[in-house]
């Protein structure tokens, strides 16, 4: 934008024109901000779609997390609840993942297990693995 205004000066454009240019520039910048906003919302929308684990799975995961961390039954857990915020350290997280493995009869890769920090992430990974499982058992 700075280079554009310099060009208008070298052309010795009348003041009216320069204001017009600046107006255009302003319009352009405001348009940019609008498109930015749109981009953000579409991004979050896409994220929501890809993260849509079934509510039952999220509920099952929350129950196991509660059990593992010895939280009272009325503790409010949301899908975005972070394990660390619930007082879990990395060892507790390992325990949670192991309990989830048993419950859903799946096997979580170590590298994946270490990336799980929220109930939502756990639920997504589980759905992913449950879906993949029939294919792998057929192949073996």
């Amino acid at each position: 934008m700075a280079s554009l205004s310099t060009t208008s000066l070298s052309f010795k454009a009348p003041s009216i024109q320069s204001t017009r240019i600046s107006q255009v520039l302003r319009k352009a910048s405001s348009f940019q901000s609008i498109s930015f906003g749109r981009f953000h919302s579409s991004k979050s929308l896409r994220l929501q779609i890809s993260c849509a684990a079934k509510p039952e799975t999220v509920q099952k995961v929350s129950d196991i997390v509660k059990e593992q961390l010895a939280l009272s039954a009325d503790t409010a857990l949301t899908a975005e609840s972070k394990f660390s915020a619930l007082g879990a350290d990395s060892l507790d997280t390992v325990e949670i993942v192991m309990a989830l493995e048993e419950k859903f009869n799946i096997s979580v890769e170590e590298s994946d297990a270490q990336n799980i920090t929220t109930i939502q992430e756990a639920a997504d990974l589980i759905e992913d693995l449950v879906q993949k499982k029939p294919a792998t058992s057929e192949a073996s």
């Binding site: 990395s90 060892l91 390992v94 325990e95 192991m98 170590e110 297990a113 270490q114």
Partner: peptide
């Protein structure tokens, strides 16, 4: 830390 967690997993 990863080694420790891996060992813990192994135990469980």
């Amino acid at each position: 830390q990863k080694q420790v967690l891996s060992l813990y997993r192994g135990f469980l």
